[in-house]
């Protein structure tokens, strides 16, 4: 009879399609229910954020340039992958302190949400784009285009659904993002990164950092190569910090409560720029 020492998972960051440790070498011990040590996870530094932004910037134009149909396929595949690993995610959420039934419901909701936004990828430009009446012989169109690189502050809870709700509308709209995951549920974020990585999502389109909000948020808010911030479940002080520093490079800011996870299609439009084109009508 062989007794095997179990292989424990090292929870790392997700940057540029790879899973590096934090460059700072720091880790945080995660405690589950009753103060039990569950796992160690990376405490990302400002430099990790910088690296993530570089990766996101590099990947963004390629992602936006893919056809809406393909973006939808990739999001759909993410949902498929999540479905296949639903039990693992439920177990991991439970380890981080959630109830068993709540965890399973949360995974189901995350899958539903991904499918929902997968469907929106090739529809939102039709729904939100307009043909404008003008008093000259022109067609005049207004179409939404992705803002660019968006910083996402995921809510502390729910750990998985919150992350998916923050990221999915951005991906549907062709943005790249740098996510600061929940500090109470960092493990599901890292495992979700594996799902993204297995779904043909190009490296760098989503980058996930785990760590302390008070350490990462100021750098995220001041970083001039981040075009917008979507923050979920932030307190008044954090909101002021974001608002003040976003002014540096006129970031778009969207602040939401932690439970605003309902698949609102307008969530896609929060990080879209409207481009209006004039096209001459043929002369008859």
């Amino acid at each position: 009879m062989s007794t095997r020492i179990p292989v424990l998972k090292t929870y790392k960051l997700y940057i540029g399609g790879q899973f590096p440790r934090t460059e700072s070498g720091r880790a945080i011990a995660l405690e589950g229910r009753g103060g039990r040590h569950v796992a160690n996870y990376c405490r990302a530094s400002r430099k990790d954020l910088r690296n993530a932004v570089v990766a996101a910037r590099k990947a963004q134009s390629g992602w936006a340039g893919k056809t809406a149909y393909l973006r939808g396929q990739i999001l759909y595949r993410t949902a498929e992958m999540l479905e296949g690993r639903a039990a693992q995610f439920a177990e991991e959420l439970r380890l981080q302190g959630d109830s068993a039934s709540g965890a399973r419901k949360e995974v189901d909701a995350a899958i539903e949400l991904l499918i929902h936004y997968a469907g929106w990828t090739d529809k939102y430009t039709q729904v939100f784009g307009t043909v404008n009446p003008v008093a000259s012989p022109h067609f005049n169109f207004s179409v939404p285009e992705p803002t660019g690189v968006i910083g996402v502050v995921a809510p502390e809870s729910p750990g998985l659904l919150g992350l998916v709700a923050g990221v999915a509308p951005l991906l549907a709209g062709g943005n790249a993002c740098v996510v600061l995951a929940s500090a109470t549920h960092p493990l599901s974020a890292v495992t979700f990164a594996e799902v993204l990585n297995d779904s043909d999502l190009p490296g760098g389109v989503v980058n996930i950092l785990t760590g302390l909000r008070q350490e990462i948020l100021p750098t995220m808010a001041t970083h001039k190569d981040i075009d917008g911030i979507a923050a979920y479940g932030t307190n008044a002080a954090e909101q002021t910090l974001i608002a003040e520093n976003a002014a540096l490079n006129v970031k778009r800011v969207a602040l939401h409560p932690a439970d605003a996870l309902d698949g609102d299609p307008f969530r896609i439009m929060e990080f879209q720029e409207i481009k209006t084109t004039w096209h001459p009508v043929a002369i008859r």
Binding site: R46, L49, R50, V53, R57, T219, T222, H223, K224, D225, L248, N249
Partner: peptide, 9 residues
């Protein structure tokens, strides 16, 4: 400045 910069600038 203490702020990470954008290559676009």
């Amino acid at each position: 400045t203490g702020h990470y910069q954008s290559a676009r600038d």
